[in-house]
Structures are given as structure tokens and as C-alpha cells.
Write a protein that binds this DNA or RNA. Structure first.
Lengths: 131, 131
DNA sequence: CTTGCTCCTGTAGTCACTACAGGTTGTAGC
DNA sequence: GCTACAACCTGTAGTGACTACAGGAGCAAG
């Protein structure tokens, strides 16, 4: 299985796969005689894991820790749990922040009477420091 | 007023102010004989506007458009309204996405029994493709 | 034997900053 | 006048997680 097949199977961009290898989150694969990378089913699983963790907002550093943990089934999963909890906290902070933005933006938009800039609530709201 | 004063008054990092100038979102200020930048009250307002818009998640491109609009009080504010609406849509998409993550992460965390990795729900959830 | 696809390496670009190196200028104290 | 030291200057590089591209090699089909 070549890099293109792995890309198609996981939906991960070829350049991104090579980038993951460079950053150490994917192990350097075997090579064919012509120098092309060869992957197997384990790489598909590993890349799926990475993709899923990235989608959940984990950074590559955390992904690498989680992957290392996954490969030691007898280790304590306290670290994994701690990383996930930290990520959950972060997600909740982001949600709260975005909900504030949502409120402010929707006020701006609904109060805009589509007139001229001089009376525009959007522009005015941006010009006014937050109370 | 020098760059350090502007920085203190707006809370914007000096390096960031110079970066805004480089990227064209702040106009190149006048210079003293010694080459130092001089700012006035209009720059404080402009930078406050930029800061506020950035806090609301507008990218510098949009900020520049909004600033240009602000300086044409007789123009239609349809553009400003459109940009704000697009930003609102984007914020709402991000909130929805983050709420999915929150659900998935909190399931992971509450189902983790703090045992070994082999039975860890966090690791398992990451290994399992999304349904 | 040419076309076109996939692959390779290495480098640079993206966004919005941030940091640092190496230099000049201004100010305050002695 | 001398010495510190802060504040400023330019220019460049680093961040994270990619993405894009240049320039080349290998391989299969027509």
C-alpha cells in the first residue's frame, strides 16, 4: 500500500501524511526499492486515530502522547484521562467565549438597519470599547 | 505619542502594532526626526477598533474592509452587515462543532474507570471511527 | 516513445502574531 | 562628559498545522 492509497483510505492529504512523519507522529514507514513509502493496516489505524484526535482538537503533541499510551495496554490510563479532561475544559472555555461573540455579533446584525455607515450599528459597536 | 504610549493605552503589544502597520491595517504613522513613530488620538481609536474586531474573531482582511467602510460615513453599510453576518454564521458553526466535541469528550472522560489503557474508554473512543 | 500519473525531496507560503539580534537614540544620575 | 539603561529602530526567524510548489524520478498504458 502506497501513500496515495493510505490517503484515499483515511481521507488524509498526502502532504499531511508526510508532514505527520516529519513531525514524528507517524513512524517512518518501510520503503520499496524505488524509495516509495509502503504502509499497512496498522498505519491505517494509527492515522485514523490521529485524524480523530485532531478532529477533537487535540494538538499533535497530545496526539503523540495518546498514541504512545495506546501502545502500552498495561500502562495506567490516568495520563489519557488527564489529557482528555484538559481538552474538555479547553473546549468548554472556547464554547463560552464563542457564545459571548455570538451574542454581540447577533445584536450588531439585528440592529443594523441597512442604511449608511454613519448610522450602522455594526460599525458603531466595533468603534465602542467593551463595557 | 510614541509607540510605547500607544501600546500602553490600547493594551496592544508593540510588535503587534508594527505588524499591523506592515500588513496595511494601520496606516504608516508620521515620524520624528530621529525616525520614531508618532501617533495621535485617531490612531488610538483605530487600534481600539482593530482590537475589538479581532476579539470578535474577524480576520485582518475583514478588519481592513470594516475600517475602510468606517471612514466613508455616507457609504451603504450593506458590506459591513454582510461581513458581520458571515462572521456570525462562522461563530455559530464553531459553537455547534465544539458542542459535539464536548459531548464526545465528556463521554470519554466519565466512562474512563482510571484503570489500564487496555480498558480505557478515552483510548478506545479515539481508536473507533465516528459513526 | 510519449503521455500522464504517482511518487520523491526540499523549500516556501499561510495566519496572526511573537521573539530576538544587533543597532541607534534619549534620558537620568553622577 | 561618562555611564547606565530604557525605548525605539530594522530585519529576520520561529510558532502550529498544515498546504503548495519546484524540479525531478519511476512506472504503466497506448
Amino acid at each position: 500500500m502506497q501513500i496515495g492509497d493510505l490517503s484515499r483510505e483515511t481521507g488524509v492529504n498526502i502532504e499531511t501524511i508526510r508532514y505527520y512523519e516529519r513531525s514524528g507522529v507517524l513512524p517512518p514507514p518501510a520503503r520499496q526499492d524505488n524509495g516509495r513509502r509502503v504502509y499497512d493496516a496498522a498505519d491505517v489505524r494509527r492515522l485514523g486515530f490521529i485524524r480523530h484526535a485532531r478532529d477533537l482538537g487535540f494538538d499533535l503533541q497530545s496526539v503523540q502522547t495518546l498514541l504512545a499510551l495506546q501502545e502500552q495496554p498495561q500502562a495506567s490510563c490516568a495520563d489519557a484521562s488527564r489529557i482528555a479532561q484538559a481538552q474538555l475544559d479547553e473546549v468548554e472555555r472556547r464554547i463560552a467565549r464563542l457564545q459571548n461573540l455570538q451574542l454581540e455579533l447577533s445584536r450588531m446584525v439585528t440592529e443594523c438597519r441597512k442604511g449608511v455607515v454613519a448610522e450602522c450599528r455594526v460599525i458603531e459597536a466595533l468603534s465602542t470599547p467593551l463595557s
